[in-house]
Design a protein around this nucleic acid. Structure first.
Length: 465
DNA sequence: GACTTTAAACATA
DNA sequence: TATGTTTAAAGTC
């Protein structure tokens, strides 16, 4: 899975006026209001993808669709954007380096706040032609999509707007903005009521669904090419998706964009192939990514009913909510800031390559361990020299503070605490900010600034988070 | 060299 | 023991 396979996700709570969801090579842009269902709720993932305006419908033979190929949209309606397509403009923000996600991912959860307390099956599901319930056995439309009766529109609702200027109201984003009011459903503390977890029968796309990659081609036998991924056959797209992106998705799906670690684990178990593994390596990787990626902020949440109990919660940073998540590697210690100025979005192949490398590293490590055990010797992974240094000059291991510094202690950061204008980078960033010991400083047009190893003591003596 | 994954050591609650 | 932090190694591009 590569970042290129994701569309740049316009953030709902900061939609630019020129925001557009759908891009297509052959059809005119779909304005935002066209992505609406008639209940004014944002549609869940797959519905959104197939919200097609009547004006475009006649171009598509309805029998192109059936249950099994419903995701194989004609090229003109490719859901995932053309990687060569110019990304949408977020005002002056450069988001080129960000992973981005389909807007539909947010709220694509069974317990999504978008459901407004309704069970999933109760939510009017639009629309033509992807809704299986609107298809007959032959995969053809059983309901005339142009027939008003095909839609479950509330006649009392009058907030459907025809303006092409998306507004929070017209998009039904009030539900989103009020999502903070939703009580959290903690896995550990507040198990979801049974009725809130509809069966997969009601949620045919609750797993990453088969979709064509931009580069995918039909295989010779007419089947799915090797580049196309399915969740059904175990070739889950999430398997090739970086942890950082998956975690981002998980958090984006949660109210307040926050989860405790166990909830993230649970999300991975539900939605990714990684989480299906019996090994615990993927948990380690999640923790590694949470710690290393500045997009994820650690906070404390008090357990309801017991003020003394606190649980650690991971929440998305604002910039990550808005722009997506950067690769975790960029925040590593000692990588320096300058390199970030030149790096672009990681190539799609890198992600699978990285995975292969990781797997290979694991294998070779195992082999080495076996050889060691065979020979009866043991060497530290650092070798004798390291052990000597370690025993004679033990390094202090200090914990990183939970969150990156804010703009308050970084001049020039402006309203975005993780934004640094490029022109300020004539000198090394660490020197510029006096953060020589900053860990994993990330500099980019809009990038985050990561954790200082020591503290964020400010003029008032209080740590800054 | 950048990127990602994976494993592991270590610290802390 | 669970969680969090950090480092290192590996393969691919």
């Amino acid at each position: 899975m590569s970042s290129e396979h994701y569309r740049r996700r316009p953030q709902i709570n900061s939609l630019p006026s020129n925001f557009q969801y759908a891009e297509s090579s052959g059809a005119p842009m779909q304005s935002a209001h066209q992505m609406l269902s008639f209940d004014s709720l944002p549609r869940a993932q797959n519905d959104q993808h197939f919200m097609i305006t009547p004006s475009t419908v006649p171009n598509i033979p309805s029998n192109n669709y059936n249950l099994t190929t419903s995701m194989a949209m004609p090229q003109a309606f490719t859901v995932w954007s053309d990687p060569n397509h110019t990304p949408m403009d977020f005002d002056s923000q450069n988001t080129n380096d960000c992973y981005d996600y389909s807007p539909s991912i947010v709220g694509n959860e069974q317990d999504s706040p978008f459901l407004r307390g309704m069970s999933y099956s109760e939510v009017p599901r639009t629309c033509f032609p992807c809704d299986p319930r609107m298809l007959n056995e032959g995969g053809n439309m059983a309901v005339d999509p142009f027939d008003a009766s095909a839609y479950l529109r509330d006649p009392n609702k009058s907030d459907m707007q025809t303006s092409t200027e998306p507004t929070p109201t017209s998009l039904g984003f009030d539900a989103l903005e009020n999502s903070h009011n939703f009580s959290r459903l903690s896995i550990s503390n507040s198990p979801k009521p049974e009725h809130e977890t509809p069966s997969s029968d009601y949620f045919p796309f609750n797993k990453p669904t088969h979709f064509p990659l931009p580069s995918s081609e039909p295989s010779e036998d007419g089947g799915i090419s090797s580049r196309e991924m399915t969740a059904v056959d175990g070739d889950d797209p999430s398997a090739d998706e970086p942890y950082a992106k998956l975690i981002h998705r998980a958090l984006m799906s949660a109210p307040d964009h926050s989860m405790v670690l166990q909830e993230i684990y649970e999300w991975f178990r539900k939605h990714t192939a990684k989480g299906a593994s019996d090994t615990k390596g993927w948990m380690n990787s999640i923790r590694h990514n949470l710690s290393m990626n500045a997009a994820f902020k650690k906070t404390e949440r008090k357990t309801s009913g017991d003020e003394t109990k606190k649980s650690t919660e991971w929440v998305l940073e604002e910039f990550a909510i808005k722009d997506g998540v950067q690769s975790t590697t960029r925040y590593r210690k000692g990588t320096g800031a300058k390199k970030f100025m030149k790096t672009e979005n990681p190539a799609p192949s890198r992600q699978s390559s990285g995975r292969k490398g990781g797997i290979s590293a694991s294998k070779t490590k195992m082999q080495r361990q076996q050889q060691r055990s065979m020979s009866g010797t043991h060497r530290s992974r650092h070798g004798h020299g390291y052990e000597f240094l370690r025993s004679h000059f033990p390094t202090q291991r200090h914990s990183s503070p939970p969150t990156p510094p804010t703009h308050e202690n970084i001049p020039g950061a402006g309203c975005n605490p993780y934004f640094f204008p490029k022109q300020q980078l004539e000198m090394p960033y660490e020197d510029m900010c006096g953060l020589q010991d900053v860990q994993g400083v990330y500099i980019d047009d809009h990038g985050p600034i990561f954790a200082n190893n020591h503290d964020y003591a400010s003029a008032d003596g209080l740590p800054r988070y």
